[in-house]
């Protein structure tokens, strides 16, 4: 059965209804850091509510993916491999800094619903251009598998770090 929830933007001044995803860092971000981050205009937090209960939250920020200039010594070889007309040094992105589902609803695809929502929101529903969704994912098999199942790829070689940057290319999401 499809999940049934509404999304609500949580302003810094709004009360934080009870929420527990079983992870102290994510819980703390929700109840404390999302307020300061919102006040500083660094991220916006949304909650998914079902029957008045917060079942998930996520925070989003503007971001971009940039690449260094290609040294002249490598440019000729690079152009052979990638002969496209335009190459952008920077492309716009949205970063999901935090995404968590409450303990009771884990394993019920609420996170997938949220990612699906964000994919549509930042393509068809978007007022500005956005090419990628970036996530800063916990480096454990459950979390990484979750994002891979949702067609995210690794951005950099950071397999030995606590979190891994992954991205979804929204260009694949056109009709």
């Amino acid at each position: 059965m499809a999940n049934s929830f509404t999304l609500r933007r949580l302003e810094p001044s709004h009360a934080r209804p009870d929420f527990d995803c079983g992870d102290s860092d994510l819980n703390e971000f929700y109840s404390v850091d999302s307020i300061s981050s919102g006040n500083e205009l660094l991220s916006v937090t949304y909650i998914a509510e079902d029957d008045g209960k917060v079942i998930a939250f996520f925070s989003v920020s503007n971001d971009s993916i940039k690449r260094e200039d290609i040294p002249k010594s490598r440019l000729k070889r690079f152009l052979k491999v990638f002969p496209q007309k335009k190459r952008y040094k920077s492309m716009p992105a949205v970063k999901i800094g935090r995404l968590a589902t409450c303990v009771d609803k884990q394993g019920q695809k609420v996170g997938t619903d949220i990612l699906d929502y964000v994919k549509v929101w930042f393509t068809i529903g978007n007022k500005t251009g956005c090419r990628f969704i970036i996530v800063d994912a916990y480096n454990n098999s459950r979390t990484i598998s979750f994002y891979q199942d949702n067609e995210f790829e690794f951005l950099i070689d950071d397999e030995n770090e606590k979190t891994r940057l992954m991205y979804f290319d929204l260009i694949k999401f056109r009709e």
Partner: peptide, 28 residues
């Protein structure tokens, strides 16, 4: 305080080449 969200680095070297190849491929 919760951990900081990892910043997205400026891509270089192999990371940049792999990313460029993937995004080019994704266009189709």
């Amino acid at each position: 305080m919760a951990r900081e969200i990892k910043e997205t680095p400026v891509l270089s070297g192999k990371n940049a080449d792999r990313f460029e190849k993937a995004t080019k491929n994704n266009e189709s």
